[in-house]
């Protein structure tokens, strides 16, 4: 799953060499803003066929949070 997420984030940020771990912090490490997170959520929804409520997006602080959410679905 981390590989698929890495691809999505690389595509979103345009940085093909990005290295991502579960501890990567979305805002501080990747420099994403709140609107980027919304876009990322849309990409995750498409890729993993899940629905992410708007309220949930603000709880995504690390890559681990995103993975946990997908797994819970």
């Amino acid at each position: 799953m981390i590989q698929r997420l890495t691809e999505i984030i690389r595509e979103h940020t345009g940085n093909k060499n990005l290295t991502i771990t579960e501890d990567t912090i979305l805002i501080a490490d990747l420099g994403l803003n709140s609107l980027d997170l919304v876009n990322l959520a849309c990409l995750v929804e498409d890729e993993f066929d899940v629905e992410i409520p708007d309220r949930m997006i603000k709880n995504f602080k690390t890559v681990r949070d995103v993975i946990s959410f997908i797994q819970e679905q």
């Binding site: 912090i25 501080a28 420099g31 709140s34 603000k58 602080k61």
Partner: peptide, 16 residues
């Protein structure tokens, strides 16, 4: 700082 970020709302997270 990351521990602080965990307890702060996201909009208040320290990024640097």
């Amino acid at each position: 700082i990351q521990k602080i970020n965990q307890r702060l709302p996201r909009m208040k997270n320290i990024g640097k």
